Amino acid sequence: MFYTLQQYKSVQWMIIHIRYLIALAFVPSGFTKVIGERFTQLPKSEAVGQFFEAIYQSGAYYNFLGLAQIITAVLLMTQRFALIGTFLFLAITANIWMITISLPFKGTWIITSLMMFAGLVLLYWDKNRIAALYSERDVPSKKYAPKVSKLWINAGIIYIISLLVLCYAGPKTDPVSKGIAIITYFILGITFLYTNFLFWKTSNHVIQSQNGV
C-alpha cells in the first residue's frame, strides 16, 4: 500500500517540495553563521540571549554549525542526495528542537516541532532504502521510492545558488546589490513556475495515455 502511495504524482510533488522548504529554512541561518555574524540580537540579560551569545563567542564552532546547515540544505535541494540530507537535517534539528523546548522561547518550539515532523516524514518516505542498509534480505529496487527526475534536480541547484546569492546581496542597499537581488528573485519565480507547469503537464499527459485518451 505504501509503495502504491509513492507512485502518486501529487505525493511525490509534496515530498520534493518539503525538501525544498526545510532546506530553505537552513540557508539564511547557516549563511549568517558561516560569515560570522550574529544570528539574533536578543538581550544578553535573558537566558535565550545568553545562550546564543555563548554559541556566537565560540567562534569556529559557530561557523561549523552554519557550514553544516548549508551542506544539509545543498543535499536536500539536489534531491539525488536527499536521504543523506534528511539524516543530517534530523540530527541538527533535533538539537534545535530540544533547545527551543528547554529554554523559554515564545512559540518557537511549534515551528521546530513542525520541522522535526517534516524530517520524519522524509525519513519514512525512504524507509525501504534505509532497511536495505541493515537487512540481510535484498529489497527489490522497485520497492524503493521513485527516482526524482532531472527537472527537480536542476531546479534544486538553481534554488540553492539563488538563495546563497540573496543571502549575500539581499541585505545590502547599494544599486548593484539591489539589482542582483531583483534578478535572483525573478529567476526563483520563473524556475518555480516552469518546473511546476512542466511537471503537472507531463503528469496529465501520462494519465490521459493510461486512460486511452
Score class of each variant (00 low, 15 high):
residue 151 L to Q: 09
residue 194 Y to K: 12
residue 201 K to V: 06
residue 149 S to T: 15
residue 168 Y to K: 06
residue 158 I to M: 09
residue 174 D to N: 15
residue 191 T to V: 08
residue 164 L to H: 02
residue 155 A to W: 08
residue 165 V to G: 00
residue 180 I to H: 04
residue 164 L to S: 03
residue 176 V to A: 13
residue 186 F to H: 02
residue 196 N to C: 08
residue 177 S to K: 01
residue 169 A to Y: 07
residue 150 K to F: 11
residue 203 S to V: 13
residue 193 L to N: 10
residue 160 I to N: 00
residue 156 G to V: 04
residue 180 I to Y: 05
residue 182 I to G: 03
residue 156 G to D: 00
residue 157 I to R: 05
residue 163 L to D: 04
residue 204 N to K: 12
residue 158 I to G: 07
residue 196 N to V: 09
residue 197 F to P: 04
residue 198 L to E: 14
residue 173 T to K: 12
residue 155 A to S: 15
residue 192 F to K: 03
residue 170 G to L: 09
residue 195 T to F: 02
residue 205 H to Q: 14
residue 196 N to L: 10
residue 155 A to D: 03
residue 177 S to D: 09
residue 185 Y to S: 06
residue 150 K to S: 14
residue 182 I to L: 15
residue 190 I to F: 12
residue 176 V to E: 08
residue 186 F to N: 05
residue 156 G to P: 00
residue 149 S to N: 12
residue 178 K to S: 11
residue 153 I to D: 00
residue 170 G to E: 08
residue 148 V to H: 07
residue 165 V to P: 00
residue 165 V to M: 13
residue 201 K to M: 11
residue 147 K to E: 11
residue 184 T to Q: 02
residue 169 A to V: 07
residue 178 K to Q: 15
residue 159 Y to R: 07
residue 174 D to C: 09
residue 146 P to T: 10
residue 171 P to T: 08
residue 185 Y to C: 10
residue 184 T to H: 01
residue 174 D to G: 10
residue 149 S to R: 06
residue 186 F to E: 06
residue 188 L to E: 06
residue 178 K to F: 06
residue 176 V to G: 07
residue 192 F to R: 03
residue 202 T to I: 10
residue 148 V to E: 09
residue 159 Y to H: 11
residue 197 F to T: 13
residue 198 L to D: 12
residue 165 V to D: 02
residue 184 T to S: 04
residue 190 I to G: 05
residue 169 A to M: 05
residue 154 N to R: 08
residue 184 T to A: 05
residue 170 G to S: 10
residue 170 G to Y: 10
residue 200 W to A: 05
residue 189 G to Q: 06
residue 191 T to C: 07
residue 200 W to E: 02
residue 150 K to I: 12
residue 205 H to E: 15
residue 152 W to T: 04
residue 205 H to I: 11
residue 164 L to A: 02
residue 174 D to M: 07
residue 177 S to T: 12
residue 176 V to W: 11
residue 167 C to D: 13
residue 180 I to L: 13
residue 155 A to I: 11
residue 155 A to R: 10
residue 185 Y to A: 01
residue 198 L to M: 12
residue 183 I to E: 08
residue 174 D to F: 08
residue 206 V to F: 09
residue 148 V to I: 15
residue 183 I to R: 04
residue 206 V to N: 03
residue 196 N to T: 14
residue 150 K to C: 02
residue 149 S to L: 09
residue 146 P to L: 07
residue 183 I to Q: 06
residue 199 F to A: 08
residue 151 L to Y: 05
residue 183 I to G: 04
residue 190 I to R: 01
residue 165 V to E: 01
residue 206 V to E: 10
residue 192 F to I: 14
residue 148 V to N: 06
residue 203 S to E: 03
residue 163 L to Y: 14
residue 189 G to Y: 09
residue 194 Y to D: 07
residue 172 K to E: 13
residue 191 T to W: 04
residue 151 L to H: 04
residue 158 I to K: 02
residue 178 K to R: 13
residue 198 L to P: 00
residue 167 C to T: 05
